[in-house]
Every structure is written in structure tokens, then in C-alpha cells.
């Protein structure tokens, strides 16, 4: 690994100042489970690592008012051990409990998963499905970005060189809502999604009021498939309509063939996994239980 400088700011202002001074040569780190590997293999080469996980604001979990605001550095294990989150946002638990294994989950954060902007990120489709926004601080102030607009390419995001992701806000999900994230992997853990699907549904009696579906690993950035809502909103919850969502997901996907799967196989999995994930989301919307894993 090349030489790096390391700083451990205690406030957002201090962190933003460091990032601003160093510009593109600096990179914020929370758990470091992606960044340290990337530094080691030379995929990212900042001169300066700004360790933001000791900033109190970035470690806050605020579940008041039905929604949740997650500090950007909150590690996965805090999320899946938080009763309020388990109760209101089981899809977030789905994601947090499969990012790496036990050891990785002790460090890795949802904020880091978002900023790393991998096409295969397991948290991003969930955040998109839940309608979350990213809260960003920079040298010129603060702004919020819808998660579906956050990633701009593999490993790339909208953050300016002076900007820091401080938290992620997930709005309260309405009554009769449910969400689910599942990925398909060849092993049962410790793997990268061949395809991942995050979905949330809001039901109105026997029909879909709204449906948000997002796919991982089938495009340069996590894909928000709005066409599914266009098709299903107002329609009855039936196997035929769920199957239609699968077909739409399959058509929307723009996968490549690589060591983790062929494009044909990934398209096929978009169909299969969208159907499965929607069914689980519907079960949760109806008050049923679906285990995270």
C-alpha cells in the first residue's frame, strides 16, 4: 500500500474542512471494509484517509416520528440489533445482516456501502425502495439527495471533493407497507450479489397502492425500476401481476457477463428474485413475518 496520511476528526465541520483542504486527494472512511481493500490493491489512491466514525453525529440513530435517520458511520450490527429498526424497517435488517459476515458487520456501515457506490451494493436497493435520502455536508452548506440519484457510476457518487455524507433519512412507511431485500449468490454468505432486489409495497386492501423496486448488479449503478409502479399501482395483488413485475425487472436490467454471472442468467434472476422479493414484501405489508435470512 502506498503511503497515506490519516486523520480522525471529531466534528462534521472538522471533517469537511479536511476534505476541502485535501480535495480529491482525500477520502472519508467509516468502517473501512471496502476502502482499506481498495487502497491495498490500488483501486483507490487517496493520499489522505479521513476517519469519520468518531464524529458523534455520524453515529446517531434517530427513530423518532416513525422514520429513521441513520448516521453515516453507524455499523451494520447496530442496525440489526436495534429493536425499533427491526420492527419498522425489516428490509434494512435484511441488507445490514448480509453485508460481509459477522466481523465485517462490526465495522461496515450503510453510509459506507452507499458512498462506495458498487453496482452490487446490498443496502442501496433497499434505501431506494424505502424512498430514502442522503444528507450531505460540504464547504458551502448542506443538501439532500434522493438515493436513486446518489450513484453516478461504478464506485462513483455525486459527492463533491469537499462533501461528506452525514446521514441517511428514511421516511416513515405508511400503514399496509412492507419491504424486503434479497440477493442471489452462489454461496449462502460472504458473496457478492449476482442480482439483488429491494422492494417496498404499500397495499390498499387487495391492490397495490405503490410499488418501489430497485435492482443491484444489473447496471453500472443500482437501478430504480419505476416502470413496475407504473404497471402495478392500482392493480390487484395477484400472482399474475407479481409475474408482470418480474418481467418488467428483467426487461429493465442492463447486465454484463462477468465472473459472477452471464447477462442472460442475470436477466433471468431479475425475474425470479423480483417475484420472490415482492411476495415477501407483501407478506410483511400484511403483518406477516419473513426472516431476514
Amino acid at each position: 500500500m502506498k503511503w497515506i496520511d490519516y486523520a480522525r476528526p471529531q466534528t462534521v465541520a472538522e471533517a469537511v474542512q479536511l476534505l476541502t483542504e485535501r480535495g480529491d486527494g482525500a477520502r472519508a472512511m467509516a468502517g473501512g471494509t471496502d476502502l482499506i481493500v481498495q487502497l491495498r490493491v490500488g483501486r483507490r489512491q487517496p493520499d489522505h484517509v479521513v476517519d469519520v466514525k468518531h464524529i458523534p453525529d455520524l453515529n446517531e440513530v434517530n427513530t423518532s416520528g416513525g422514520g429513521v435517520t441513520l448516521g453515516a458511520a453507524v455499523p451494520c450490527h447496530i442496525i440489526y440489533n436495534n429493536d425499533a429498526i427491526k420492527d419498522a424497517f425489516p428490509a434494512l435488517v435484511d441488507s445490514a445482516s448480509i453485508i460481509g459476515g459477522t466481523q465485517i458487520q462490526g465495522r461496515a456501515s450503510i453510509g459506507g456501502n452507499l458512498c462506495n457506490a458498487a453496482p452490487s451494493a446490498d443496502a442501496i436497493p433497499t434505501l431506494i425502495a424505502l424512498g430514502a435520502t442522503a444528507n450531505v455536508s460540504g464547504s458551502t452548506g448542506e443538501r439532500s439527495v434522493a438515493i436513486e440519484d446518489f450513484c453516478t457510476g461504478p464506485g462513483q457518487n455525486v459527492l463533491g471533493a469537499d462533501e461528506l455524507l452525514t446521514s441517511i433519512s428514511i421516511p416513515a412507511q405508511g400503514a399496509n407497507s412492507g419491504a424486503r431485500y434479497q440477493r442471489f449468490i452462489p454461496r449462502n454468505e460472504m458473496d457478492i450479489a449476482v442480482v439483488g432486489v429491494g422492494a417496498s409495497v404499500t397495499l390498499n386492501n387487495g391492490s397495490f397502492e405503490s410499488v418501489r423496486v430497485s435492482l443491484a448488479s444489473v447496471a453500472p449503478t443500482p437501478l430504480f425500476v419505476t416502470e413496475i409502479n407504473d404497471e402495478l399501482a392500482g392493480k390487484d395483488v395477484t400472482d399474475e401481476n407479481i409475474a408482470k413485475a418480474g418481467e418488467i425487472a428483467k426487461d429493465a436490467a442492463k447486465p454484463i457477463s462477468d465472473m459472477r454471472g452471464t447477462a442472460d442468467y442475470r436477466r433471468h434472476l431479475c425475474d425470479v428474485m423480483t417475484r420472490r422479493v415482492l411476495s415477501d414484501a407483501i407478506t410483511r405489508a400484511r403483518g406477516g413475518n419473513v426472516d431476514a435470512h
Binding site: R8, G32, T33, V49, D51, T102, Q103, I104, R107
Partner: peptide, 20 residues
Amino acid sequence: TVKMDGRIVCSCLVFGVEAE
């Protein structure tokens, strides 16, 4: 694997300076 502040972590994915 080592335990750090109550959680097990992969010590290859922690910088030594983070042990402060």
C-alpha cells in the same frame, strides 16, 4: 479475527492507528 471494543473484526481491515 480480534475483538475490538466489544466486537470481533478482521484486523486486516483496521488501520493500526485506529487502535488509539
